[in-house]
Amino acid sequence: MHEANATFNLSSTAVFKITNAAGFLWEHMDDAHIIYDTRSGHSQALNDFAREIFDIIEDKPCSLPEILAALELILERPIEDDLKQQILKTVAEFDKMGLIEPVKSHDENV
C-alpha cells in the first residue's frame, strides 16, 4: 500500500480554482470557520489565515505566486520563508481535500 498522504505535484505555474462554491456550507464557530463540502461529506476547520487564502482563490483562480503576492498586500509586508512554507502546505492541503483544483488547460480562461 502506498502512503496515504501522497500528494499531487504542485507546480508553481498551476492555476487553482474553487469549483464548488455553491456546494460548500460554512459555520462560523468561536475559534474557527468550519467548511462542509457537500460532495465529499467532509467537514474541516479553517483558521482566519487559511480562510484568507481560501478567499483569495475564491475571488479569482490564481497560481501560487499570485496567492503569495495577494497575501503580501494584505499583510503589508514581505512573506518570509517559514510562512511561505505554511502557505504552500495549506494550498496543498486544500488540493488534497478537493476544496480547490488545478484549472485544466482547455478552461484556463475562466
Binding site: 499531487f8 460532495r39 465529499s40 461529506g41 488540493d95 478537493g98 483544483e101 488545478p102 485544466k104
Partner: peptide, 19 residues
Amino acid sequence: ASRQRKIMWEMNRVGRALY
C-alpha cells in the same frame, strides 16, 4: 444517496489523480 455521493466524489478524486 450517500453511496451515490461517495461514488461521485471518488470519480472527482480519480479525475484529479488522472489530471
